[in-house]
Design a protein around this nucleic acid. Sequence first.
DNA 1: TTGTACGCGTTATCAC
DNA 2: GTGATAACGCGTACAA
Lengths: 377, 377
Amino acid sequence: MRFEAVTIKDIARELGLSTSTVSRALRDSYEISSDTKKIVLECADRLHYTPNPIALSLKEKRSRSIGVIVCEIANSYFSQIINGIESIAYNKGYNVIISQSHESFEREVKDLNYLASRSIDGLIISVSSETENMEHLKKLHDRGLPIVFFDRVSEEMKTHLVIVDNFKGAYEATAHLIQNGYKKIACLANSSHLSIAKERIGGYKQALIDNGFSIDETIIKYNNHGGIERHEIEKNMEELISLGERPDAVLGLSDKLTTGALRFLQHKGINVPNEMGLIGFSNSDLTELLNPSLSIIRQPALQMGKTAMELLLQLIESKRPTTQFAKKVLHTELIVRNSTKRTGSLNHVKSITAAVNIGCLQLAHLLSAEILKAVFL
Amino acid sequence: MRFEAVTIKDIARELGLSTSTVSRALRDSYEISSDTKKIVLECADRLHYTPNPIALSLKEKRSRSIGVIVCEIANSYFSQIINGIESIAYNKGYNVIISQSHESFEREVKDLNYLASRSIDGLIISVSSETENMEHLKKLHDRGLPIVFFDRVSEEMKTHLVIVDNFKGAYEATAHLIQNGYKKIACLANSSHLSIAKERIGGYKQALIDNGFSIDETIIKYNNHGGIERHEIEKNMEELISLGERPDAVLGLSDKLTTGALRFLQHKGINVPNEMGLIGFSNSDLTELLNPSLSIIRQPALQMGKTAMELLLQLIESKRPTTQFAKKVLHTELIVRNSTKRTGSLNHVKSITAAVNIGCLQLAHLLSAEILKAVFL
DNA sequence: TTGTACGCGTTATCAC
DNA sequence: GTGATAACGCGTACAA
């Protein structure tokens, strides 16, 4: 705004002092008599003086604002991360400027240049699905812009990283599917070059191997746009269910992919968890309420945001160039619900039909009553 | 950053020109010869010159950034709104600084002061659940800060508003419940002093009246913190289901309230839509996939964000003080799904039990087969 | 203890 | 057609 902002000059004029005296009094400098300080403070208060952060920025060559680039804020995982970032930034008097790449490399580069031109003091970023080349980030980083990566990181650049144990998260989820009797587990992945995809697929494969399963690359489906366009997921799922021997479970490697898979299966009338088990990475509040309730791998998003911001502050406020870089690895949580629990209902239905066909109505009834109770009571 | 930023001065030194010449050349002023322009532009390009927005802000007394205050970004409705705001802001070279009130008045005031001290050029706000007093906003508005309200607005202040037809949205939803045979429709509302609550409750009541129902204030439950703490919704829902004559449907007046009601009902094992119908305002992508799929009133959130930003730009960029204020009213969309469609299954279950009890197994089977088909095939 | 002068990057205004 | 200077708001080295 700066509509009719009161400046240090106004106070000086009002009090017949020089601007420097006022400035020093306001900053509680030792060279100013307590008498003068008192009058100045009183006057500043009376006039509703607030320092102009822009003038300060110009002088200090820092803007006290940081940039955040994520693919999408309308995504629980990222909005929770941003909450974490903001909670720390707010306390330290930093501004957070949020940009969305919408999974587009071009947009990411634009956003970055925009933020850079806005004189941000630092950057927190999870790269877009399309980002393979890190030159745009490297260039700014080399010129001294502090950067912290989270989620989708690049080890190419020497800086702090905040991630979760993606390998373990995917491993546990896959092992869980196997324990529940699923035999052919497909994987709905993001771009193959993303760090998270690599690590998660690693965990998925290892779990298969450790349980004596073979790895079938044809049932690992990559979504190069992260499923931001719905038909990408649909196409991949369609291919999976069209296979001769259809997979009986799916592991989704991101929020969008997991719920996208469920959407597809529901539309197709494919029963989850009986015809197809489903588990995936997700941070949505609603997974518990879905049909069926989704088994998920949850990430500590709020904490990730906080950690990233704290690391960035270290970089920004350190006097000498940082040489030791942290790689914070937080833990995922496996939450088991109904989307991975075969109820056998489908087999029941088949049994009932069979019973009716051979005239055993009493058996048919018994089977029916059991399932009806389970479902409706 | 401003790590080693190239300035107009660097170009001037490099070319042996004055800073003013360079400045004018860059701004394509008519007083500069095209030759000089060419050299300057070339040099600026070579040195990767980018203008320093902070210096510009200081000079122009505008920051080219606007503030947005919402209660929560981890909420589909608000993140979609923000998307809309950003899409316009981005094109116009404006920064968007997002703050969250978390439904707290105190936090809202703090956020506002913070944004004001950061010299925002304008503000877009949906007030918190607790906000009854508008003084904090009025003060800044009177001092010349352009403000646009959306969603939860105040008519006390003379400025642009962006809302939806809340009355109609609630009216249609309530009428829909009535048409589907629900007889006692409760309402889960936010703070009674919020504009959206008033309008939506108005629509709800009118629909009841128009259909010959009486209004029962005891089944209108207010959530003064907007359901941000889960137990608030739980307490209210608990009271509703404990009534002698329990309501058979619920209308949720916000995203959080609607999904919160579903969560409660699921936990209690109360069947939706048979024992309790459910419909509500929501913009979540996942409502379609919930158990049961939710009937909702959807708001054109993206469009609302765009409209709000466009109106704000008008205020910011208009030469003379604005006196005509717009009140944009967009339309909601009623999406009917399963949470308001009684299937009668529960009655079926009871009938089957009865049939078994009197020994009519064949009837029991027929009823069972029908419902099993509906559910599992 | 207080005041003067300068610089941060940019542009508008004047002078040449 | 180009250059010098002042100004935006602030902090600080230096002068008094």
